[in-house]
Design a protein around this nucleic acid. Structure first.
Length: 445
DNA sequence: ACCTGATCATTG
DNA sequence: CAATGATCAGGT
C-alpha cells in the first residue's frame, strides 16, 4: 500500500483502532507459527503485512519512506493505580564502542531516516495471548522536536566510552536516548577502546520513560509543548537552585515562604524547600518537557564536611502484595531501572550541625546500573521469601548479605513496632532504603 | 562516631 | 488520618 500524503496515511490508519492483532493478521503470522509469537517485533510485522499490506520480508525500515514517516508498534500497560506507561523501550541500532568515539552526533543516522514516527499503541495485558491485544490509539510524533536532547544524550554515551567506562553505562545516564543491553545471553561481553574491562553489548534505544511521556502527553492532549531551552535536567535544576546555593536551610525556607522558622525547624525542611524551589515531584512534568519524558525524583541528602552522606536514603513504605510478582516483572525493578534520582546535597557547616543549618551545596544525578540492580534483586527476593514463608527473621535488614545496597528499615510513627507487626496488614510500616556506603560511592563519581 | 530501629512534620 | 520524605537518638 502506498500513501501520497500524511493525511492519507492517518485516514487509513484510523481503521486500525479497536482491532486486535488476530483480526488484522491476514498473513496468519501469529496463528501459523507459534514460535514466532514470542519473537520481538512480530506485532510490528503483523501491522505491516496485515494492515498496511506490505509484502512479507520487506525491508523493515522502509515503512512510509516517501512521506517521511516511520512505523512503530508499541505496547502500553495500565498499573493498579490507573497510570499509563509504555511497556517496553524501542531499541534502535547497536552501539559500536570502538567507532562511537570517532563519531559526531548525526540525528538522521541515529534515529531513523525519517523525522516523524507513527506509533500504533496497543494495550498490553498480562497473561493474555498477544494476538488478542487490542490496538487503542495511534499517534504521529515529530522526533526532531527532541533533537537537541538526543544530541546531548549521545555525547553522554560517547564520553563514557572515551573515559573507558563503557561497562558502567546505564539507561539512567541519559534523558531520552538510552543505552540498553543487547545480547543473546546475559553473559555476552564485548570490547571497548579505552579500557580492558569487557562491557555488555548495548544498543541505542528510545527509553521506556520517554515513550511513556509521549503517550501520556498525547492522551491528555496537553500537547501544549512547554518548550524551553534546557538540554538536561541538571541544567534546569541548577537554574532554580543558583540563587540559594551557599545559604542554609532556614534562611532559604524563610526567603521562599516569608515566614520565620528559626525557633522551630520542621523535620522535613528540605522537602519543603525543594518542593517550593524546584517543584513537587508530581508537578515536575508541567515544568519542563524533560520531566514528562523521563522519570525523575528529587531527593535530599545531608552530607558531612568530607562529603559522606549522614543518612540512608528512604523510599516509600512497602506493601506485602507488591512482592507477589517476580523481580523481573516487579514495579520496584522498573522503578530503579528507570528512575533517575536528583540528589540535592546539603552540607554541614560544622561537624554535627543541626537540621536547619545545613548549606545548599549542589545537585547530583544518580542512576542505577546492572550491577546495582542485581544487588537490589537479592533484597527483593529476600523480601519475597520473607513474605511467602511468613518468617520475619529472613527480612533483609541492614547487612543481611554481602554487598547489600538496599535494606529494609522501620518507617512508622510512635508505637508502630514495625517488625513485629510486619504481617498484620498489607501496607507495612517498613520501607526500603539505600545504605550510606552505596550512596557515597554513587555521589563520588 | 556510627548503626539501626524509632519517630516526626507536613501533605493530600 | 495515614503515607511520605526525612531526621532523630539510644546503644554499641
Amino acid at each position: 500500500m502506498k500513501f501520497n500524503s500524511i493525511d492519507e496515511l492517518l485516514n487509513y490508519t484510523n481503521n486500525i483502532i479497536g482491532k486486535t492483532f488476530y483480526e488484522i493478521d491476514s498473513e496468519n503470522l501469529l496463528k501459523n507459527n507459534k514460535n514466532l509469537k514470542h519473537r520481538k517485533g512480530v506485532l510490528g510485522q503483523v501491522v505491516e503485512t496485515g494492515f498496511y499490506k506490505y509484502p512479507i520480508n520487506n525491508d523493515p525500515h522502509a515503512d512510509f519512506d516517501e512521506i517521511g514517516v516511520e512505523l512503530k508498534v508499541s505496547g502500553y500497560k495500565i498499573s493498579k493505580t490507573g497510570k499509563i506507561s509504555a511497556k517496553e523501550r524501542i531499541s534502535l541500532s547497536k552501539i559500536d564502542y570502538n567507532s562511537i568515539v570517532n563519531e559526531e552526533f548525526n540525528y538522521s543516522k541515529l534515529i531513523s531516516k525519517n523525522s516523524k514516527i507513527l506509533i500504533i499503541w496497543y494495550l498490553y495485558e498480562k497473561g493474555k495471548d498477544i494476538g488478542d491485544f487490542k490496538i487503542t490509539d495511534y499517534q504521529l510524533y515529530e522526533m526532531k522536536k527532541d533533537k537537541e536532547v538526543f544530541k546531548n544524550d549521545f555525547n553522554i554515551i560517547k564520553n563514557k566510552v572515551l573515559e573507558g567506562k563503557a561497562h558502567e553505562l546505564s539507561e539512567g545516564d541519559t534523558s531520552y536516548l538510552g543505552a540498553c543491553t543487547k545480547a543473546a545471553k546475559s553473559t555476552d561481553r564485548t570490547t571497548q577502546p579505552f579500557s580492558d574491562i569487557p562491557a555488555k553489548p548495548r544498543a541505542y534505544s528510545l527509553k521506556n520513560s520517554y515513550l511513556t511521556g509521549i503517550f501520556r502527553n498525547f492522551k491528555s492532549s496537553h500537547n501544549a509543548t512547554n518548550s524551553n531551552n534546557f538540554l538536561s535536567i541538571e541544567e534546569y535544576i541548577y537554574s532554580k537552585m543558583r540563587p540559594f546555593i551557599g545559604k542554609n536551610q532556614v534562611k532559604i525556607l524563610e526567603e521562599l515562604t516569608g515566614k520565620k522558622y528559626e525557633n522551630k525547624v520542621p523535620k522535613n525542611i528540605n522537602k519543603m524547600i525543594t518542593d517550593k524551589m524546584i517543584g513537587k515531584d508530581s508537578e515536575l512534568p508541567n515544568k519542563s518537557d524533560l520531566f514528562t519524558k523521563t522519570s525523575f525524583i528529587i531527593k535530599n541528602i545531608p552530607i558531612k564536611i568530607n562529603g559522606k552522606p549522614k543518612e540512608r536514603m528512604a523510599f516509600r513504605t512497602i506493601s506485602l502484595s507488591e512482592f507477589d510478582d517476580d523481580w523481573e516483572d516487579s514495579d520496584w525493578k522498573a522503578y530503579f531501572e528507570e528512575t533517575t534520582l536528583l540528589t540535592i546535597l546539603w552540607q554541614e557547616p560544622n561537624n554535627n550541625s543541626k537540621n536547619g543549618e545545613r548549606i545548599l551545596k549542589g545537585v547530583k544525578k544518580i542512576s542505577f546500573n546492572d550491577y546495582d540492580l542485581s544487588s537490589f534483586e537479592k533484597t527483593y527476593n529476600k523480601l519475597k521469601e520473607t513474605i511467602q514463608k511468613k518468617d520475619i527473621s529472613l527480612l533483609p535488614t541492614p547487612n543481611s548479605f554481602e554487598n547489600q545496597y538496599l535494606e529494609v528499615a522501620p518507617k512508622g510513627i510512635k508505637g508502630d513496632d514495625a517488625y513485629n507487626n510486619f504481617f498484620k496488614k498489607d501496607k507495612t510500616k517498613v520501607g526500603l532504603m539505600l545504605n550510606k556506603n552505596f550512596l557515597y560511592e554513587k555521589l563520588k563519581n
